[in-house]
């Protein structure tokens, strides 16, 4: 137990470059695998939280843009959504890395973009924005027309109508799918260090370390289940957080209509 505490001190923040410099090379203990893979989770959480949070705002803008009547707002939004939803994230990572490399030659301002912490984050941010925008756009389309008519009848228009009627209803309708999208986004963060982006000083995410142990111990049956456990915990946490928001969004509805909302056939990715 004491030994494991020492491991925690040495490797708990290894993925951020704090603590022991060398990774364990032999005599791998279960504790080391738990600690290091857990340490890598900080990257997954960082990528996921920042991308999803920032993506929420861009997604709302894009969804409104796609629904806009003006061609020069609608077309760019549609194209943005199409490009990021229509191609695999894995290929986007590769392409973005090579693109950033070329941009860097042209202008030094792009040099941080070839590191995972910024370059991969940008890709994830754009990606989740596009997916969420499509979900929000779908929700905007399925707002019951009665709701909008009621708002019109109250003499609302423009910003107040959006702020008080359209936006809350959109979120309420989109929320189950949006929860799925958030879960997906957290899981997609594992692709970062498996694509073009190199790992510096062996600082990687949870999958990087799980893969490290699987390669060193030649036994995939321990590190990958540990990784799975961490991700299930993370997923439960996301579901719990989004569930709380969902209850808040639906607080005015009668009891039986509330529960039905979560059982809408979820439109996953």
């Amino acid at each position: 137990m004491n030994e494991c505490f020492q491991t925690l001190m040495d490797y708990g923040l290894r993925s951020q470059g704090i603590g022991e410099k060398l990774l364990p090379r032999s005599d791998f203990t279960l504790c080391q695998q738990f600690v290091l893979i857990g340490s890598g989770m900080t990257w997954n959480i960082y990528f996921g939280v920042v991308a999803v949070f920032a993506g929420f705002f861009l997604a709302t803008a894009l969804a409104l843009g796609k629904g806009s009547r003006h061609l020069w707002i609608r077309k760019p939004s549609e194209w943005f959504i199409f490009v990021f939803r229509g191609s695999p994230l894995f290929v986007q990572f590769f392409f973005a890395y090579f693109l950033f490399l070329s941009l860097k030659q042209a202008h030094p301002a792009f040099s941080p973009f070839t590191s995972a912490w910024l370059g991969a984050l940008v890709v994830l941010f754009f990606n989740t924005s596009a997916y969420s925008a499509e979900i929000f756009y779908g929700a905007l389309q399925s707002i019951p027309k009665g709701d909008i008519e009621a708002a019109d009848a109250y003499g609302m228009s423009g910003w107040p109508r959006f702020r008080r009627v359209i936006w809350p209803t959109m979120l309420r309708l989109a929320w189950p799918s949006y929860t799925n999208e958030a879960i997906f986004m957290f899981q997609s963060t594992t692709l970062v260090f498996f694509s073009g982006f190199p790992a510096t000083q062996q600082r990687g995410d949870a999958l990087y370390y799980a893969n490290y142990f699987a390669d060193k111990t030649f036994n995939p049956f321990i590190p990958y289940p540990i990784l799975a456990m961490y991700f299930i915990l993370l997923t439960l946490l996301v579901i719990w957080g989004y569930g709380a928001v969902n209850r808040y969004l639906n607080r005015h509805l009668p009891q039986e209509r509330r529960s039905r909302l979560t059982f809408r056939p979820n439109v996953i990715r």
């Binding site: 879960i183 594992t190 498996f194 999958l207 893969n211 995939p220 997923t235």
Partner: peptide, 10 residues
Amino acid sequence: GVPDIAFFLF
């Protein structure tokens, strides 16, 4: 609940 890539590797 688990990233698909982890399943693929495993």
